[in-house]
């Protein structure tokens, strides 16, 4: 078996408030191999987002080790973490987080701007990326001119444009209806087949069905970790159509 691309060991995260300490993570270990499609589930407040923030190099654990693509990143400074996020990771958020009044293409170009990619190559790759998510004809549309599902597709195009090894998505379908959610999952499955590792957080068991591994969290710990055969999202979509 290949080496894990994500390897978190004994992660502890403690938030110090004025008089109370909130222990959001109490020793979580998780290893994800390249190409895996993992969903993290759990009740509200169980520490899923905290976990994702550390995996996404947006935050550092209070203790424990986190190796990303073979190198320890839990002790890196803000600047280096930014570079890691830019080169190795892609993010998809629940609320899309596209820049308002900015075209889809320019939104997708943004990570390449910080990677120092030249303008011509930026345009080319952004267009290719948008075509991949099925928005090749919406390059000039601003977020206000796009549906929620389309906005999330733009966000996914932005997440993959720098050719990351891992995509992290915190409740990417949380703001979408069930049909659009399945379409987005179909897109993730397609990306997974091309070799990208995906970790997503979801509340909905229906969504977790499309992933090949489900990690359950409770009170800052991993409760269960089950590998499964995923449901094919395209088939699910086809069935939906027949039912109509």
């Amino acid at each position: 078996m290949s080496e894990p691309i994500l390897e978190a060991t004994d992660l502890v995260k403690t938030y110090k408030m004025e008089d109370v300490e909130v222990r959001a993570l109490r020793g979580v270990s998780l290893a994800v191999r390249p190409g895996e499609f993992v969903s993290i589930m759990g009740t509200s407040g169980s520490g899923k987002s905290t976990m994702m923030n550390i995996l996404g190099c947006l935050d550092r654990p209070t203790s424990g080790s986190y190796k990303l693509a073979g190198s320890e990143v839990s002790k890196l400074g803000r600047g280096d973490l930014a570079t890691v996020r830019n080169k190795v990771l892609g993010f998809v958020f629940q609320s899309f987080n596209l820049l308002a009044r900015t075209s889809a293409q320019e939104n997708v170009e943004l990570p390449m701007v910080y990677a120092g990619v030249g303008a011509a190559e930026r345009h080319e790759r952004a267009i290719a990326s948008l075509e991949k998510v099925g928005l090749g004809k919406r390059l000039d549309h601003t977020p206000a001119q796009l549906s929620g599902g389309q906005q999330q597709r733009v966000a996914i195009a932005r997440a993959i444009v720098n050719r990351p090894k891992v995509i992290l998505a915190d409740e990417p379908t949380g703001n979408l209806d069930s049909r659009t959610s399945i379409e987005i999952m179909a897109l993730f499955q397609e990306l997974g087949r091309s070799g990208i590792t995906i970790v997503l957080v979801t509340h909905e068991p229906d969504i977790a069905e499309f992933t090949n591994r489900v990690v359950m969290m409770r009170d800052g710990k991993v409760l269960s970790d089950v590998t499964q055969t995923p449901v094919d999202a395209r088939e699910a979509l086809a069935n939906l159509k027949e039912g109509e």
Binding site: G79, A82, L99, A115
Partner: peptide, 16 residues
């Protein structure tokens, strides 16, 4: 603020 957060998430360094 959100825009700044997003830019940082996708790779903007503090200096940027």
């Amino acid at each position: 603020t959100r825009e700044i957060g997003l830019r940082m998430a996708i790779g903007a360094r503090p200096g940027d």
